[in-house]
Design a protein around this nucleic acid. Structure first.
Length: 169
DNA sequence: CTCGGAAGTA
DNA sequence: TACTTCCGAG
């Protein structure tokens, strides 16, 4: 069954924070796209209820540690309807992110990866409000830490602004 | 554990 | 395209 809700007014509330539905979609796709793994990881990273499963690495910019690989895999598998998911497979998906420049591995540190935020957040989360215990990740760019109450007007702004590339030098 | 090729799925 | 599955190598 398809959701009949209008794209403009769907707001998802998450432990004090509100996220517009488009925040869950990838860069350029107005329609309904499946959730991305990095979206999911960021999602878990925001909720304190998963702090024992996955959390930001204190002191490191955008670095996070998967404290309970099996649980993260189980949660990911549930979201994607892949009951057979496990850390071996999930980590393979994460490794594909290395070339995509979304993530990279923190060598030596077990279950530790790091986001390449410089290219990710600004393109996909123009209004992201990350108040994680970690460093002030996205400050510095245009003031984005705004209340996530999105109106219809912002959507077109986002859709239009996405092509403003932030590509490699 | 971590890496990345190769084949398969939707 | 974005993984999922399987797996040999380091």
């Amino acid at each position: 069954m398809k959701s009949p809700e209008p794209l403009s007014s769907l707001i998802i509330s998450v432990s004090g924070l509100a996220f517009p539905d488009w925040a869950y979609k990838a860069e350029s796709s107005p329609g309904s796209r499946q959730i991305q793994l990095w979206h999911f990881i960021l999602e878990l990273l925001q909720k304190e209820e998963f702090r024992h499963v996955i959390a930001w690495q204190q002191g490191e910019y955008g670095e996070f540690v998967i404290k309970d690989p099996d649980e993260v895999a189980r949660l990911w598998g549930r979201r994607k309807c892949k009951p057979q998911m496990n850390y071996d497979k999930l980590s393979r998906a994460l490794r594909y992110y290395y070339n995509k420049r979304i993530l990279h591995k923190t060598k030596g540190k077990r279950f530790t990866y790091k986001f390449n935020f410089s290219k990710l957040i600004f393109v996909n989360y123009p209004l992201w409000d990350l108040r994680c215990p970690a460093p002030p990740l996205l400050l510095g760019a245009a003031g984005m830490c705004r209340p996530a109450v999105v109106s219809t007007g912002l959507q077109s702004e986002v859709t239009a602004g996405q092509r403003g590339m932030v590509g490699p030098a």
